[in-house]
Nucleic acid binder design. Structure first.
Length: 302
DNA sequence: CGAAGCCCCTGTTCGC
DNA sequence: TGCGAACAGGGGCTTC
């Protein structure tokens, strides 16, 4: 799925366009992507009609549009979700699931999702436990200190200015698991998926199966710096796109895939030491490592 | 509480 | 060419 940088690219595109616009029409074309809206699609439509969008906010891979009704349109892109801003006369996409029309008729918001792991719902907002802004919003302005209940269990992400890095480091070191599993745990730190986990581990020269309790504080700090750095670089290049499944609100691909050191580069040389990158099965997925830079620890855990 | 496995979907690619 | 298996960037839920 799109990970943090890709979702942030989408958030920025939405913030620029939909903020201040009022919903005039909503069409749900498939029930599955609205399954998390338990009251049903008719209720979802009713709550959106006439509402004005006030912002676009993101925490980790979750994205929501606060409305002037006090609720928010919550979205998760899952593995293949897209938020597109299209001219209303553009042909419907093959996997178009939800359409939101605005008063001005210039563009409409389309939720497109092939695999339908993602979805949208209309949710209430509640105060953040710490009273701090919930995540990344606006045009450089902090978001309001409220977030959807559905996002309350999601930790702050590496690009969140209010992330407590010292506390996160301590929590990681208290875990009893492999470091990559910890990185992928959205309740510990959010926004990191398979691609950026592998890239950050490579940059920090750590193997994915390093037991968390064997990492010292500087090692964890180095890893978190690497996560931040790789995400910022990806953001600067519009995110990572392997195919047409991840694109921004205008349908354009990012090009960070050209900068990936190990992810998806099985059999190719490590850009740092030349060793051949390997792919290992990991949690029903894959992990890519450089055997030279990231030797497997004697005591491995995953 | 934390850790780990299962499952939800569709489409493409790969190997036989 | 045909077909089944493997695989694809996630996360909620259940169980232990």
């Amino acid at each position: 799925m799109p990970e943090l940088p890709e979702v942030e690219v989408v958030r920025r595109g939405l913030a620029r366009w939909v903020t201040g616009r009022r919903v005039e029409g909503v069409e749900v074309l498939h029930p599955r992507p609205v399954r998390r809206h338990l009251a049903g699609s008719a209720d979802l439509v009713a709550r959106l009609l006439g509402a004005r969008v006030d912002d676009a906010v993101r925490r980790g891979k979750y994205l929501w549009l606060p409305l002037d009704t006090g609720e928010a349109l919550l979205a998760h892109l899952g593995m293949s979700g897209q938020m597109l801003l299209q001219p209303p006369d553009a042909d419907d996409e093959r996997h178009l699931r939800v359409r939101v029309r605005f008063g001005d008729r210039e563009r409409e918001l389309r939720f497109v999702d092939q695999r339908m792991f993602g979805g949208v719902s209309v949710v209430g907002l509640e105060p953040t436990p710490d009273g701090l802004p919930a995540g990344t919003g606006g045009e450089g302005t902090p978001s309001e200190p409220v977030l959807p209940h559905e996002v309350a269990h999601i930790a702050r992400d590496p690009l969140d200015p209010y992330l407590d890095a010292a506390a996160l480091t301590a929590r990681i070191r208290l875990r009893r698991t492999g470091i990559k599993r910890a990185l992928l745990d959205q309740g510990l730190v959010s926004g990191v998926g398979n691609i950026y986990a592998d890239e950050a581990l490579w940059r920090a020269r750590l193997h994915y199966a390093r037991p968390t309790e064997t990492l010292n504080r500087p090692e964890v700090a180095r890893l978190l710096d690497a996560v931040r750095a790789v995400m910022l670089e990806a953001l600067g290049q519009g995110g990572t796109s392997f195919d047409a499944l991840y694109i921004d609100v205008n349908g354009d691909s990012g090009y960070f895939d050209r900068s990936l050191a190990v992810y998806g580069r099985n059999g190719q040389p490590c850009p740092r030491c030349g060793s051949i990158v390997r792919r290992d099965p990991f949690m029903n997925r894959s992990s890519y490592t450089c055997p030279g830079c990231q030797p497997r620890p004697r005591r491995a855990r995953w």
